[in-house]
């Protein structure tokens, strides 16, 4: 008898869930990088020492605090609160942040263009779970 009373609420909750899931595609579906690229990207990140300033999933040490954490990067909003969050923009930014976003507090980093694309691939390839 009680279950009958609650049915409208259940229906409303289910509808709300459906509506929420429709708001955004699952992050993984937006951009799926090549595993080879992400592997090279991680190596480039280690070699360049990005983790001196950023907490980066997959890197146990160091976990720099002076820059923003890159946890869940593929689910983030704008890059550096300025650029549309696309792999191309991210590659541009990690290589030469002051050029990509004038006034950026992140300096240009010693990465080749190809390495910067790999780094972007790694950051987008991170698993959200």
């Amino acid at each position: 008898m009680n279950t009958l009373q609650y049915r409208p609420r259940l229906a409303a909750a289910a509808l709300l869930c459906l509506a929420l899931t429709a708001c955004k595609e699952p992050p993984g579906a937006r951009y799926v990088p090549d595993p080879e690229d992400t592997k090279r990207g991680l190596a480039a990140i280690e070699r360049t020492g990005c983790a001196a300033c950023h907490e980066i999933p997959g890197i146990d040490w160091p976990r720099g605090q002076i820059g923003p954490s890159l946890e869940g990067f593929n689910n983030a909003g704008l890059i550096a609160a300025a650029l549309p969050n696309t792999p191309e923009n991210l590659a541009l930014f990690v290589r030469n942040a002051p050029a990509a976003k004038p006034g950026s507090t992140m300096p240009a980093m010693p990465l080749t263009e190809e390495e910067s694309r790999d780094v972007a691939a790694y950051l987008y390839g991170l698993d959200d779970e």
């Binding site: 020492g49 720099g64 300096p107 980093m109």
Partner: peptide, 21 residues
């Protein structure tokens, strides 16, 4: 002997060496 030497790591080290070491 722990970090590569570039402008980014230099800034990170000066600004927050305690998080790194």
């Amino acid at each position: 002997g722990i970090l590569p030497n570039n402008r980014g790591t230099m800034i990170g080290w000066i600004g927050n060496s305690q998080a790194i070491k």
